[in-house]
Design a protein around this nucleic acid. Sequence first.
DNA 1: CAAGATAGTGTCCGAACGACCACCCGTCAA
DNA 2: TTGACGGGTGGTCGTTCGGACACTATCTTG
Lengths: 200, 200
Amino acid sequence: MPATDRRRDAEYLARLRDYYASAHRIPSLQRICDLMGFASKTAAKKLLERLERAGFVEKTPEGDAWMPTERFFERPLAATPVRAGAPDSIEGAQGDLFLVDRYLIRQPSRTVLVPVKGDSMADAGIYEGDLVVVERDRPARAGDFVVAIVDDAFTLKELALEEGRFVLKPRNPAYPVIRPRGELEIFGVVTGLVRRYGAT
Amino acid sequence: MPATDRRRDAEYLARLRDYYASAHRIPSLQRICDLMGFASKTAAKKLLERLERAGFVEKTPEGDAWMPTERFFERPLAATPVRAGAPDSIEGAQGDLFLVDRYLIRQPSRTVLVPVKGDSMADAGIYEGDLVVVERDRPARAGDFVVAIVDDAFTLKELALEEGRFVLKPRNPAYPVIRPRGELEIFGVVTGLVRRYGAT
DNA sequence: CAAGATAGTGTCCGAACGACCACCCGTCAA
DNA sequence: TTGACGGGTGGTCGTTCGGACACTATCTTG
């Protein structure tokens, strides 16, 4: 065994992540033994300490349990087909790691996810069931996709300028352009989109 | 006390969310007592059962612990300017940072993010610059969007069945259907999509 | 008013928990 | 060659955990 067998830990970390995905919690030492095939809880405890040093888990503020860090959720970003499965080490080395939340949400306190209803933006690749990432209190410019409040309901449209006035353009020829009578009330600007395929 | 005192439960839920934000875990019954001022663990247990019925928490698959549901992270309606027909928006900020990652990724150890190049899937609302969430080692069925390896490069196409053989169909009439000569090598199945607007 | 449901108390128990210690055995550098 | 280090076994200990049961007080409804 090499002095630091991080390859094996990468496999352990993968199993830990899978467990977390289903149970949303770092398992107990005993359950880690089951998951990894350890016979002793000490091995599990030492594994967690190693992962803590590597920055994947940390203690809760009370210090009585473990919780994941941001790094725990990072996913590899594949640029080119990585053949011949280079076994990923815990130290990273290969492909960039990536956190979707980081990528999409820049101002957490002002960001909301809103489910899309209807197909008025279908030609822009936004379909019913998608989630749009909406940043509130952000100046909107023509060409932005915005969530506006029209007749006390939320509408997702493209903000456009028409003869010096803001209008809401659908991206589907079957829908009419909305020309607001008075002030146009904008809830927020769309900064991202999330879609899930084959979901349950 | 009313038959269902949901007002008080809303306060409890708020405290539970605060705790979760710091410890990333549903507290134990005893700790719930401390948090809420209960004197008996039974009260804590019943509270969790109420919240389960309301859809905020659920049991882990093993049934030995509690975990939050997606609803747990919903921003309280009072936080958004209350309007008729407010959209059900998920997540505020103060809940959990890693919500989108969890929404998209179910098997972390087998999931990779792949950037999209080209517009061969434009009619399916997948554009250049998007990121697709790819789950590897997963049986692909006709109709799935898959990332295949053709000539040592990634290709994103729809898997289709044509006269008993698998073919790769683009979702853009400008591109031809790919009929692989020999074995079709599938890298993984697309289970999600991420897009960012107005990126820097 | 009475019946029933609801929020919470108090107490018990067995199982699971994490902390700790002594020990084993490869690997690797001095 | 030898000693330090790192991953792992095996077992003990006191604590905490969740589940169960009996009971109280309050509010709602018929």
